[in-house]
Design a protein around this nucleic acid. Structure first.
Length: 638
RNA sequence: GCCAACGUAGCUCAACGGCAGAGCUCCGGUUUUGUAAACCGGAGGUUGAGGGUUCGAAUCCCUCCGUUGGCUCCA
């Protein structure tokens, strides 16, 4: 006898071996119709799964996240069947879900092109319409390996799978695929789908392996959800910093220097404001600032270990028969500054910041707007301290980091901790204590984090701060890295209490990561609508007609004397056109002035994106704007 | 670096073997305007670069450069 507890705590009794589907039918025909899978004792299984004994049961529908996940994976199978039908020589590799859809890796010599998507979708539609059941077949591992003999990809998948029982699913017209499951009961249960893109992907992410074709698709409960998703992508593309950067004349790129950003006057205004703010916060946290050369002798890079570990990404130059490298990191220069005098434990922790311009020859395929460039300015700093100061220093860096992120309204980021890699230097003991110091600091600040085992730098463990761009791609901002290598390589020392020379600990950290990337992220974060304090132009003065131009000019001079960034639109256009132009430029404030305002020394304030306007005395406006700027207010309410 | 797609005026795009075009921007003029785009005119191009096929190439083929989306890598 099976005793089945439902989510509402009610209990159904049935004969052993009853299927989840039968129970769903017993609960209600409506539920049975929308049922996709079942959760038996926290394990998600097919609806056909048999129930024995005392269990808890939940029927999963497409409303559940798990139901949508299952639907997507079943959709991947349908896509695989369609592709195998169109290209019989296609070999299936691996087809997991991703955040908002799925992909399937396929080994096929003939390239699948975007132009083929339509016929793949057509074939998929036929399969879905036929509403054939997904049927699970189980067999022992040995039998599965025999069955898959000759298919190196699926054999590999079986070898990587856990457990002794291997399952296959068949659906459609004799299509069968190795799969753990579960699946929807039949292909007709799959909602609205679309093939999104195709891209190359290495088998197991290994560049020495064959490049496969990865076909991306998305699948939603219904057409409306699919359309909403496609709309969201379109919206996101409108936030793309590369598009907005051109629209707002912030920066550009040129074939003359791929991966090297040209910052325009508007972009530099934002840049300099971020630098100014950054300096204020670093002063508050007792940092000093230095600047080290961009081009340094090659020998230095041998000593630092960069030659050995980073040569492929470095630029080199040669003159007067001497080889030089263009710095990819600031630390060696920082070490040379440290060595210019003797240091005492009394001056520790020594926090030395540098806005260092570095060059890294990134692979051509990874260059991406301001997010991934070949020349960038790091907001770097090196903290020299004693081992027992590590944890408090890390806490200090985290506090400084949050203070800076908060000013820009960033709440949505995540933290990752990377631990000892296989190729590392230093003893296990020192790695363990350093990693624990990082963990303790995170625990102390009550920060959740993800652990990337073995992903640390060769010289020490690290904490990274990540943020997502408008298309949900994740980008690293700040980083905190413990470095046991550099102080030794450069023979850095300090004199301790006992008058002996010891090696300091070096903490390498960046908060914004790179100014280029950070400005790109700011643009996407605000969709180009910068808060008042960061806006390249804060207010545009718009005379109603030429008759008010003199008042407009006088007003401009007055606002500028109060350090407001503004200009006059003295064109022959009507006021509506001037407003439209200002909106296109995403200006926060528009000041419409005509004879009325001129007479009363006032301005009519119009706020970006709003219909209603407000007339106020010029002095009152200046005071109010100045306060918003000083407070770095994000809202524009006047 | 690898796979695929794409490079036409400053920007967004059309023409897809047969005279390179539109809107916006820019320049000149008319208009003197009260809250999201007035009107008229003009300028702007060896179609990313080089080679090939063809009577004829933006269009077809090859090489290179760049861009986009992924993979690997990474701030």
């Amino acid at each position: 006898m099976a005793k089945i507890t439902l989510p509402d705590s009610s209990i159904i009794e049935a004969a052993d071996g009853v299927s989840a589907k039968q129970i769903a039918e017993q609960i209600g025909a409506g539920l049975a119709r929308v049922a996709i899978a079942a959760k038996i004792n926290d394990r998600i299984v097919d609806l056909t799964a048999r129930i024995t004994g005392d269990v808890s049961l939940q029927i999963i529908t497409s409303k559940d996240t798990a139901g949508l996940d299952i639907m997507r994976h079943s959709c991947a199978h349908v896509m695989a069947e369609a592709i195998c039908d169109l290209w019989p020589s296609a070999k299936l590799v691996y087809g997991p879900n991703v955040e908002e859809g799925f992909y399937y890796d396929i080994d096929l010599d003939e390239p699948i092109r975007p132009g083929d998507f339509e016929r793949i979708e057509e074939k998929m539609n036929q399969i879905v319409k036929a509403d054939k059941p997904f049927i699970r077949k189980e067999m022992p591992r040995a039998e599965a390996l025999l069955k898959l003999a000759g298919d190196k990809y699926k054999t590999d998948n079986v070898n990587r799978a856990a457990g002794d029982t291997i399952s296959f699913y068949s659906s459609g017209d004799g299509f069968e695929d190795l799969c753990r499951g579960p699946h929807v009961p039949s292909t007709g249960k799959i909602g609205a789908f679309k093939i999104m893109s195709v891209a190359g992907a290495y088998w197991h992410g290994d560049p020495t392996q064959k490049m496969l074709q990865r076909v991306y698709g998305t699948c939603w409960r219904n057409k409306k959800e699919l359309d909403d998703y496609l709309m969201r992508i379109e919206e996101a593309k409108r936030r793309d910093h590369r598009v907005i950067g051109r629209q707002l004349d912030l920066f550009s790129f040129n074939d003359a220097g791929p991966g090297f950003a040209f910052m325009h006057p508007n972009g530099m205004i934002i840049w300099n404001l971020v630098v100014e703010f950054w300096r204020d916060v670093h002063n508050k946290f007792n940092y000093e600032e230095i600047k080290t050369p961009i081009v340094l002798n090659k020998e230095l890079w041998h000593r630092s270990g960069h030659w050995e570990h980073y040569k492929e990404n470095m630029y080199f130059t040669r003159f007067d028969d001497v080889d030089y490298a263009i710095k990819p990191m600031n630390c060696p220069g920082g070490c040379l500054v440290y060595k210019t005098r003797k240091h005492s434990y009394r001056e520790f922790p020594l926090r030395v910041a540098e806005l260092g311009l570095v060059h890294r020859h990134e692979a051509s395929g990874v260059i991406h707007g301001l997010f991934r460039v070949r020349q960038f300015t790091q907001d770097d700093a090196h903290i020299f301290c004693t081992p027992d100061q590590i944890e408090s220093e890390i806490i200090g860096v985290i506090e400084l980091t949050f203070e800076i992120y908060r000013a820009f309204g960033f709440e949505d980021f995540h933290v990752e901790l990377s631990t000892k890699p296989e190729n590392h230097i230093g003893s296990d003991e020192i790695w363990e204590s350093a990693t624990n110091a990082l963990k303790e600091a995170l625990r102390h600040k009550k920060i959740d984090y993800k652990i990337n085992e073995g992903d640390g730098a060769f010289y020490g463990p690290k904490i990274d701060f990540h943020i997502q761009d408008c298309l949900k791609r994740s980008w690293q901002l700040g980083t905190i890295q413990l470095d046991f290598s550099m102080p030794q390589r450069f023979e850095l020392v300090y004199t301790d209490k006992d008058n002996t020379e010891k090696t300091p600990v070096m903490i390498h950290r960046a908060v914004l990561g790179s100014f280029e990337r950070f400005i790109g992220i700011l643009i996407e974060h605000y969709a180009g609508e910068m808060p008042l304090w960061l806006s390249p132009e804060q207010a545009r003065i718009m005379p109603i007609s030429e008759k008010s131009n003199d008042y407009a000019r006088a007003l401009e001079a007055k606002l500028k004397s109060h350090k407001l960034r503004c200009s006059c639109d003295l064109s022959d256009e009507k006021i509506g056109a001037k407003i439209a132009a200002a909106h296109t430029e995403k200006l926060p404030l528009m000041l419409v002035v005509g004879p009325r305002e001129a007479q009363s020394d006032s301005v009519n304030v119009r706020i970006r994106g709003r219909e209603q306007t407000k007339t106020m005395k010029t002095d009152e406006f200046i005071k109010s704007a100045a306060k918003k700027i000083a407070d770095k207010e994000i809202g524009l309410n006047f």
